[in-house]
């Protein structure tokens, strides 16, 4: 059963209901929502591997706060003008993959790209230096935090930051950040190439937890 132009709701719902999707949200972000999500992440991941869970939590907080502070897409909910973004966390077996996406002005993209490339070019010690340098500098005008969230994400995850940008015809671009956190710490293989999301998984009806849609229907497409 399809709704509009090839959008398959059941496929969409199935995709989000897979075990490996820990969080998937697109919409207005508020501090209250962020706290609910982060609480959820903590509870879920603490049981398995507390140390890794804490890393995912800390990185999520930094990335989500960046969306909350800087997204250029807005949504009106009553009197509130909330910033809109997309937050996804998946478990692809080897990594927890944290992904955030939001609109930015096109003209800022080169600066974001440069920062990301710089982060990825530094080893751990140099990255700590860079963080200290940024933290010691006076706050930039637009900055609402410390301006070191991405650097901290790279430090905490111990891996490279992936940045993807899609430019639109207007003055905006869609800006995506991907951070991978190794699920099992023992593995010492550093700088493994960034993983791609796993494909098909057995369908399950449970595990449909933190998504924005929670219909009471069955997961199975019925045509």
């Amino acid at each position: 059963m399809q709704t509009t132009k090839g959008f398959d709701f059941f496929e969409y719902h199935n995709y989000l209901s897979q075990d490996d999707v820990l969080l998937s949200y697109k919409g207005p972000l508020t501090d209250v929502l962020l706290s609910e999500f982060s609480h959820d992440i903590r509870i879920k991941l603490q049981e398995e591997e507390p140390k890794v869970g804490k890393k995912v939590f800390a990185i999520f907080m930094e990335l989500a706060q960046n969306v909350l502070f800087y997204s250029k897409e807005f949504n009106m909910f009553g009197a509130n003008r909330d910033r809109v973004g997309t937050l996804v966390i998946v478990n692809n077996g080897d990594y927890y993959q944290l992904m955030t996406g939001n609109l930015v002005y096109k003209h800022i993209v080169p600066e974001l790209m440069e920062k990301c490339e710089k982060i990825n070019s530094l080893d751990r010690e140099a990255l700590r230096e860079y963080k200290r340098e940024l933290r010691n500098a006076p706050k930039s005008e637009e900055s609402k935090g410390a301006g070191i969230g991405l650097v901290q994400a790279a430090l905490t995850s111990g891996s490279q930051i992936e940045m993807r940008v899609k430019e639109y015809a207007n003055e905006f671009a869609f800006y995506v950040i991907v951070v991978n956190v190794k699920i099992r710490e023992e593995e010492s293989e550093e700088n493994k190439p960034a993983p791609t999301p796993t494909e098909a998984k057995p369908e399950t009806n449970e595990a449909a937890e933190p998504t924005e849609v929670k219909p009471e229907t069955n997961n199975e497409p019925t045509n």
């Binding site: 939590f57 800390a58 706050k139 609402k144 935090g145 410390a146 070191i148």
Partner: peptide, 12 residues
């Protein structure tokens, strides 16, 4: 036991 980067700047 946890502080965000914004707090880390203030602690400094």
């Amino acid at each position: 036991t946890y502080f965000n980067t914004s707090s880390s700047r203030s602690i400094l």
